[in-house]
Design a protein around this nucleic acid. Sequence first.
DNA 1: CCAGACGTTGTT
DNA 2: GTCTGG
DNA 3: CCAGACGTTGTT
DNA 4: GTCTGG
Length: 232
Amino acid sequence: MPGRLIQDPEDLAAHLAHFGVKATAALIKKWEPLYNLAPNNDALCVRQRGNRREAVMLRWGLVPYWEKDSATAKKPINARSETADQLKTFREAFRKRRCIVAATGWYEWTPGKLRKQPHCIRPAHGLPLGFAGLYENWDSGVGVTIDSLTVLTCEPNTKMAQLHHRMGCILDPAHYDAWLDPKNEDVDALKDMLRPCPNEWLTHHTVSNIVSDQRNKGASCIKPGKIAARWA
DNA sequence: CCAGACGTTGTT
DNA sequence: GTCTGG
DNA sequence: CCAGACGTTGTT
DNA sequence: GTCTGG
């Protein structure tokens, strides 16, 4: 499952065009590649309200709309695709507030003796990866708002099963429009889109444990390598 | 009716 | 806000 | 997801 | 061991 994300498109405008949105000048200006995006950080997402589709930064970790205090609230970074349409925390968002995380990879960790071995997962053919997500517009009632999201999960495909027993739902690009359409309330059809993507879409390699410390934000996170033998 | 929970993953 | 449990 | 804290009283 | 913070 995605617990750390990568968003490092070579060309931001082309990356967003793949999801049917234009990169605003403001976004392009402040954009920096994210090699180690952790929970509670802002992730680059695409959403649609009415007929307007937009690229937006959403905080990873969904703050339920009824929470009084966002600081102490439980903020799930993942939601099971099998049940998200029914659970109180996600039901409304599943029907009306779906989004796509415009990613270029993520990390998984496999057990080691003393430290875990991180793996970097990338699209095999260079296309962006669109994780299916749900977002929420939290309002404190006293002027503070937070736009947050959670990533849906499903069974892994056989390639990812080597690394973990869950994976993020990566949408087929053919489903982007239907997934993002807020008027689409065909829950069965929506759930059908939340399946493990084909093995062929992904490739992965081990990386050093630099990435395990979320303060390390640089490109060295994705560099092939492994944890030192003494940790393995 | 009111009170209390509302989530996932991994690990044990 | 809404559902579940008691 | 991993890393890091996990506490109070009193004094500065 | 478990929770919080990032």
